[in-house]
């Protein structure tokens, strides 16, 4: 048996590193101004609940300096039957990452007849990010969350960053430009073994806080956040009507401006 044949077959069987994109050059294709590129300086949240993992994301896409390009942008991608990818940063980086993971996971599913594990998807994505970051530098901007429910009955929530780091989170994770505000809410309100309605309420509350203080995230009163639940049955998108119910319950608790005015009028009337 020839050594080169064995090596060729080994290379054929294991997923290979992706080809890097063109190197960033000051005068080349990549030399467009950074702020002119479309960005989703966003808020994405993944939190565990009793049956699996809930993912919530806002809908805003910015670009061309400080313009809002879209308020209907979907940032939750189903990359395999058992996992979703959410991302923030450059839109092109997010879409390329999604394409890479979806293609690899689909190829694996076609051959092995079982979905690739979340750990495997996260490892490949982290390696891909590392390569892209090495080649493109600051032009590559990606902060993502990969969540999945494996066939062995375990759920996994991974935080993946552009430099190639991969961290498994035990409870919840929020990232993007509004990640700090969302994390503050999750720190206070997250509980173990919540039901879906409670988890969605907390997720939407975190989005509300992020939208209030972060210019890159959409206000939940202007654009309804998108949400998806990952359980042992796979990925299930949550309908807008259900998210709206959670949103109404969150807004009822907030001292918004109309509510303040109404209270003042009521007080004036009473007095």
């Amino acid at each position: 048996m020839h050594r080169d044949l064995v090596e060729r077959i080994v290379r054929m069987s294991v997923p290979q590193k992706p080809e890097p994109l063109a190197r960033a050059t000051p005068h080349g294709r990549m030399s467009v101004q950074r702020h002119a590129r479309r960005r989703s300086s966003t808020t994405i949240i993944g939190l565990r609940y009793a049956d699996g993992i809930l993912c919530v994301a806002d809908r805003k896409m910015s670009g061309y300096w400080f313009r809002i390009m879209s308020m209907d942008f979907q940032k939750i991608y189903t990359v395999s039957p058992i996992s979703v990818l959410m991302g923030s940063g450059s839109v092109v980086s997010l879409q390329q990452a999604e394409r890479y993971v979806r293609r690899t996971a689909k190829q694996f599913l076609m051959q092995a007849k079982v979905p690739m594990s979340t750990e495997g998807q996260a490892a490949l994505l982290a390696e891909w990010c590392e390569l892209q970051f090495m080649w493109l530098g600051e032009w590559f901007s990606f902060f993502g969350i990969l969540a999945g429910f494996d066939t062995d009955g375990t759920s996994h929530l991974y935080a993946i960053e552009q430099d190639g780091c991969k961290i498994e989170e035990a409870q919840y994770y929020a990232t993007g430009s509004g990640g700090f505000e969302a994390t503050a809410v999750l720190d206070q309100r997250w509980e173990k073994d919540m039901n879906l309605a409670h988890a969605l309420h907390i997720g939407v509350d975190a989005q509300y806080q992020a939208g209030c203080r972060d210019s890159g995230s959409s206000d939940v009163r202007l654009a309804i956040p998108s949400a998806a639940a990952i359980t042992k049955d796979g990925v299930q998108p949550i309908s807008e009507a259900y998210v709206l119910q959670a949103l109404a319950s969150v807004l009822a608790l907030k001292p918004s401006k109309p509510l303040k005015t109404a209270l003042a009028l009521a007080v004036a009337g009473l007095s």
Binding site: M1, L5, I9, V10, S13, V14, A112, M116, E119, E127
Partner: peptide, 29 residues
Amino acid sequence: LGFLWETRVSTKDYHSYSGRLALTSINQA
């Protein structure tokens, strides 16, 4: 193959199809 799958992807993802594919490819070639 197992080592490569486990280091590049994960310990869970080295399935029998990969081993069988490698052996049948060698035999056929």
